[in-house]
Design a protein around this nucleic acid. Structure first.
Lengths: 234, 234
DNA sequence: TGCGATACTCGTACACTGTTCGAGAAATAA
DNA sequence: TTATTTCTCGAACAGTGTACGAGTATCGCA
């Protein structure tokens, strides 16, 4: 438990470092991207970086802190709001980039659930979102509500999308038996059956997910726009 | 990998069961509620149920399947839509109950990310949501968009709320050092600073979270209502 | 009544995990 | 040179999921 989690200012007076906090975090992200959350172990990360597993514990307090660091590391892939656009376009741009990042790093949403996420990159991103909203006429509790609603929606949408991806990447026979079960079980819900028949095995899920995402965001922005302080330039 | 995951129809011709699939799942939920996702191990579940750890593997394929079962088990705590209300009230009732369930079982959202969730109880709940939306004038792609947006928002909101809870339940000194770091780091974002000063240590977080949830849902429903087939009885 | 066959229970074992501890190596400061 | 600090890492511990196979209790049927 160091004082500050993300920054460490130590001036080396002794041996040659040969291993760095930043390279450890980068290596962890590589392993996470390649093999998922379960594929990251201290030993495997050690051999990935050509060092002993316990060496990592000199640079990092424990695995939890390492996950915190990877969490903020990928937040660093995001950039700030695009100037010169309307506030809705700016927000959709920010959140679409956030979604893309989360999809690039599928372990991100699973780490999120038990972690605050106040690293410098996360702060920077949130500050950008807040500034756009404030300029658009949100303040006080309405600002808080808008910011929370938007961020939370993105998180849930990506979580849902990833769970859908996991479902589609199951072995074919498992999908088939599952489908047979579902088809039989939903016969008692005619409305739902008609709905699922159409969407359970859609041909282009990526396109559907993106369409879901943007239209839901538009709907949410519609609703939020009516809850601003000023009702100008809608 | 049994044929159907959630149902198993075997007629015992041999020994006394003394252990049941349902009691295993109930015991697993108890352990998860008490000690979190990390607190559920096959050995601990065994001793919780007064049986050997490997005995469980006769009734359950592996831990993953057990998690699937617990997942649907807690979905069984939800009931269908309340008749005699407007569609918005029905939906808010359904989703508020879903949120309350997820908060009762904080492990739920962490399990969700890597799991499809097509158990019978989940199907029942989704069918209820779909039927309300269909009766409210949604169909086709708009129905899909509305259903996805609502479910995804709830998931994200609860995930966010739980991460917030985890943050507030950290040891006090860790919170303080983190706060000091955050306060210093956000000085370069004046807008965000003013915002965080107000909301970082709000006195009644439960109330704030509930307010966020309901107003975001109202905003989302506002936006969705304009994207129905018929624009009647808004 | 006896005899499989079936339905379960569980001890042992294996490979793996996060993490602690303490010994050692290497480089700088005095 | 000596002392001190920085860093690496092998060994060990408790815990994990799960495969295997031996053992036991109960049933249907002869």
């Amino acid at each position: 438990m160091p004082g500050l989690v993300w920054t460490r200012t130590r001036r080396p007076r002794g041996a040659r470092p040969s291993l760095d906090r930043a390279t450890i975090v980068r290596g962890a992200v590589e392993l996470l991207d390649a093999h998922g959350l379960a594929g990251l172990s201290m030993r495997q990360l050690g051999s990935h970086l050509n060092c002993g597993a316990t060496t990592l514990y000199w640079h990092v307090a424990n695995k939890e802190e390492l996950l915190d660091l990877t969490f903020d590391e990928v937040m660093g892939e995001l950039s700030g709001p695009e100037p010169g656009l309307g506030w809705r376009e700016q927000i959709i741009g920010l959140l679409s980039a956030l979604r893309a990042m989360m999809l690039r790093h599928p372990w991100y949403v699973r780490v999120y659930g038990s972690r605050p996420g106040f690293g410098p990159h996360a702060l920077r991103f949130n500050a950008g979102l807040i500034s756009v909203l404030r300029a658009a006429g949100f303040s006080g509790e309405r600002l808080d509500n808008a910011q929370a609603a938007l961020g939370q929606y993105v998180l849930g949408a990506v979580t849902n999308e990833l769970s859908w991806q996991a479902w589609r990447s199951m072995p074919r026979e498992q999908i088939d038996t599952m489908l047979a079960y579902i088809r039989e079980a939903i016969q008692q819900y005619p409305d739902y059956e008609a709905y699922l028949q159409e969407y359970l095995l859609v041909t282009d899920p990526e396109k559907m997910m993106l369409s879901r995402f943007t239209t839901a965001l538009e709907s949410l922005l519609d609703g939020l726009a009516n809850r601003r302080d000023t009702d100008l330039n809608l």
